[in-house]
Amino acid sequence: MTRADHRADHRADHRVDHRAGTEPGVTPSPALPGRTGRTDRSPARRPARGRTSLLGRVAPPVLVVLLLLVVWQWTVTALDVRPQVLPSPLRVVEQGWAFRDVLWANTVPTLQVTGVGFAVSLAVGWVLAVVVDFSPWLRRALVPLLVASQTLPIIAIAPLMIIWFGFGLLPKVLVIALVTFFPIAVGLIEGFSRADPEASNLLRSMGGGRWAEFRYVRLPGALPSFFTALRIAITYAVTGAIFAEYVGARAGLGIYMAQQKNSFRTDLVLAAVAVAALVSVALFGLTYLVERVVAPWIRRTRS
């Protein structure tokens, strides 16, 4: 018999055994796996308390916010605070609604800048993290630089960017990328290196090289920490965009806030702040949606 024959035999065996194994009543041994399979299925059941309903998760923060707003409204009314100093929440809502067209017109550019800036940041973060993961030398060279980049005082850099690159998209994209690529890159780098060394041994025993290890182990294994980093980064992104606009822009929530502040429309500043907060929360929620589409297993293993 040649080696090939032997392999063919193996496969034939598999097929025969498969049929025998699945046929009900054909039980070659008392330790039959089929039976164990059914009896020890219980660990599969998940406790119901692991998951709170959407309402259960949304209601508490909403209640707290409402409570704070009531206190605020009551204080402003009771102490008769001037609206230029602190408008009541009702006034903010009322004026925000009255100026909804302007607010919306300034929200769109902010969203655009955030989107482009964050896309750049994601690309930079991924490229850096993958490069660093494949090359120990580049890891040693780049990681300290990444950390150093975070000590740059944005407050000083952002106005310079306007001087260098004008009032267009570029300076804002750069500011957003600068404040958000770091958590993404670090989250990924740490996620990659969290891979079990034994898993890399397993891959190598299967004949895989470094690329296979990355593709089958390190990359998927890094996704949970990537999504955590993504959530941190996305909240920085909106703040970064508003900051960049505040320094100088043609339109956007940031420059709108600056203008309204200068004309003592505190109510409209706060209305713009509220819009920015809503955008942040929405983007934050979006990351969960993306996670559920890209890596649904994360949620299941987390609970």
Partner: peptide, 26 residues
């Protein structure tokens, strides 16, 4: 083809966390 003899039929689409210790080893 091997899921039969390995007593894993019906768990093809499950996630490993849903398996018992013995099934994980198989």
């Amino acid at each position: 083809e091997l899921f039969g003899p390995f007593g894993l039929v019906g768990f093809e689409k499950s996630r490993p966390a849903e398996l018992s210790g013995g099934m994980r080893q198989r």
